[in-house]
């Protein structure tokens, strides 16, 4: 794995060292990440490219706020495929995103 899963130091820096708030949103993240990924997976089994794009976009934004670049890049890939009308590409990138999502949550818990 070449890209960082989760950079706690950077997140803390972005929050001016507010560890309590960081822990609080990381707690939310452990719920939100699996929920959003499950939603994206459900959408990928359908044909609604626009919804896939919006959902991947949301995951991308969340990941970048959490300083989780690997998940951000994986979501970005799906968002891009959906924007370009490439449903198969989006579906193909999904399993990689699911794997990274699980690892990101683990890294956050650690």
């Amino acid at each position: 794995m070449s890209v960082t899963l989760f950079d706690r130091a950077e997140l803390l820096e972005n929050l001016d060292g507010d560890a309590e708030f960081a822990d609080s949103i990381l707690g939310d993240a452990q719920v939100e990440i699996p929920k959003d990924v499950a939603q994206l997976k459900a959408l990928c089994s359908g044909e609604e490219l626009h919804s896939i794009r919006v959902c991947a976009h949301t995951i991308k934004g969340m990941a970048s706020n959490l300083c989780a670049p690997a998940l951000r890049d994986a979501a970005f890939a799906i968002e891009g495929a959906a924007r370009d009308g490439d449903l198969e590409g989006a579906r193909a990138a999904l399993s990689e995103l699911e794997k990274i999502a699980v690892m990101t949550v683990e890294a956050i818990k650690a």
């Binding site: 929050l15 939310d28 959003d36 949301t58 934004g61 969340m62 706020n65 959490l66």
Partner: peptide
């Protein structure tokens, strides 16, 4: 903001 984390950051 639809993403909860982003929303909490905004609220902050």
């Amino acid at each position: 903001e639809d993403d909860k984390i982003s929303r909490r950051l905004l609220e902050r």
